[in-house]
Amino acid sequence: MKAQTRRQWIVTHEWMVKPMRQKEWISGKGVLVWLAEVFSALGMGTYLVGLLAGVGEITTWAWWATVLGWALIVAFKLPLHLIYLGRPLRFWRAIPPFTKAWKTSWLARGMFFSIVFTGTGFLQIVFWYFLHWGDLSASAADTLTVLSWIVGVVAGVFILLTGVYCGFAMSYCKSLPFWNTGLLPVVFVIMGIADGLALTMGVNLITGGSDADIGSLEFWSRILLVVNALLIAGYLVRAYRKHSAAELAAQDLIKGSTAWVFWILLVILGIVTPLVISLITMVMSGNTEPLLIVAIVCHTIGAFALKYSVLKVGIYRSVLPGVG
């Protein structure tokens, strides 16, 4: 009986006649894509924040932030993507020079960005380690500083590209009007950096960073949260105006089956709570660590919720003209 119900070629009354959700990247094994994309954003944000924080003077927490960001990409994002593949052992076929698809394919580009970042990011972490803790001669330190700058810039550019490519890969899909906008990569990157700031705050707390550093991280986090709230609002308004399928997706997000993820996990926990906490800690004196920990957890939940909700409400247009 179960096999009978799977025979889609006989019962096709819904298939592509009505707007339908995409499932490949969110249902079943597709959950791995969602998780990989979340770690991609978190890794990008954490690494970038750590890198920028250590530009002037390499601090212990900045170094650990880059390590955490790099590890999130290498130990979580890439393996999850590999596990998702139907033929994981052939992954090398997506990497230049084994393919020329990077000219058009965002996945091939993403694979390339991730691999370049893996190498240069590792070198930067090693160089920073020796610069911070190593007992180097003046000339060796100078040489290593120059080298760390070079690999740092390359790693910084490529981690940004690693964080942004998944947004472009999704926005490329014309058949999914909710995704098909240049605003999507921007939302993903801004949210990723905001979440990275939160994780870096966590690193700062663990490694005993200064209150001034935490204050600075909170300041930027506050700004990015407000920017992202406005971007998400703009995104939804655009969806309502763009196309009926995009409108349907936005409605699903706001009042449909995905609404609890959007409102509770993303808006309330992911954006409003960290914003309120950061405002409270601005005026509060004394021990703010418990509040900061709550903000970091909420931020991270928001990162998971953002990618989930966007992937979940990817709705295809009908293939029949005049039917939505």
Binding site: M20, G86, P88, R90, S175, V319
Partner: peptide, 20 residues
């Protein structure tokens, strides 16, 4: 050559591809 990433399945506007 196919690695089974299913990007083509998602990108096809006509949904005429199937992942085996």
């Amino acid at each position: 050559k196919c690695i089974g990433c299913r990007y083509c399945v998602v990108a096809c506007p006509y949904q005429n591809r199937t992942f085996f």
